[in-house]
């Protein structure tokens, strides 16, 4: 396993699970922004492509002691991505400032090794060609190229928006490598009605996510595996935080 370097900028997403309602606006905005074709059988979650997916969590207790939460899951943009080192053709890499794990569709051969390697199920395979209902292809965006069948895709944290923000900064004579907070925000974060998602540079103290990620309520998914995600979650509820990783029964009691 190769080691990955640290970057001066680390784009991070922080989701407040206590504010998430599971409404799905993030999923839909992502779907539309990144040209994921609608499918009639979209309720079959084992086949639909959801760069952003919402898991359901429950404390496992019976009504009325039950508590539940939704957990939106984009690509974790792991510091040590399980998916990158396995790709046989360098179709995916973590090689850019910001630490976004890239996925290049024209390079991908569709072996799905990365799909298997990712414990978050963040990678999706195009089982079929993307077909929009007749005419609806007029509403696809310039942001992401359409993917043919047989390649893998995943959340890019709307990398194109970063490119646009840099472009804008250049035109305004500003430094494209020192973007102010909220100059670059992924579609899901922008769309979230209850403001459950925060986005920014985890390393920049001027960005809110920097502080949020250090909050005692913050946690990441499956930290014990050593994937070192750039996506954080916060919750004031202990049971929610505990479900972020596997806990041995003995430890749970302690």
């Amino acid at each position: 396993m190769s080691e990955f370097k640290e970057f001066a900028t680390k784009w991070g997403l922080v989701v407040d699970l206590d504010k998430c309602t599971g409404c799905g606006a993030c999923m839909i905005s992502c779907q539309v922004e990144n040209n994921i074709a609608p499918v009639v059988e979209a309720s079959n979650k084992l086949r639909s492509l959801n760069w952003m997916w919402i898991f359901e969590m429950t404390n496992g207790k019976a009504f009325p002691e039950n508590d539940a939460a939704f957990l939106p899951r984009p690509c974790m943009q792991c510091g040590k991505p399980p998916c990158v080192s396995v790709c046989p053709v360098v179709a995916t890499d973590k090689n850019e400032e910001g630490g976004i794990v890239s996925q290049i569709y024209p390079r991908c051969i569709g072996c799905r090794y990365c799909v298997g390697a990712c414990p978050y199920h963040a990678r999706y395979f195009n089982w079929f060609d993307p077909i929009w209902p007749e005419g609806m292809e007029k509403a696809i965006t310039p942001h992401a190229s359409t993917r043919p069948r047989g390649v893998v895709e995943k959340c890019t944290l709307c990398h194109h928006r970063w490119n646009y923000a840099k472009e804008k900064a250049r035109q305004e004579g500003k430094d494209p490598s020192a973007l102010p907070e909220n100059a670059y925000v992924p579609a899901c974060v922008e769309a979230c009605p209850t403001g459950a998602m925060y986005f920014g540079d985890l390393k920049n103290p001027k960005h809110k996510v920097h502080e949020l990620a250090k909050s005692p309520n913050a946690f990441r998914l499956l930290e014990k595996l050593g994937t070192n995600p750039q996506v954080y979650y916060v919750s004031a509820r202990e049971w929610v935080r505990k479900q972020g990783d596997n806990q041995l029964p003995a430890k749970e009691k302690a």
Partner: peptide
């Protein structure tokens, strides 16, 4: 849920993905 549309609009094609199983 707004994601399942409205009577006059039906279920919007792209929203179907957010309809949970």
């Amino acid at each position: 849920k707004t994601r399942s549309g409205s009577p006059a609009v039906g279920i919007p094609a792209q929203d179907l993905t957010a309809v949970r199983d």
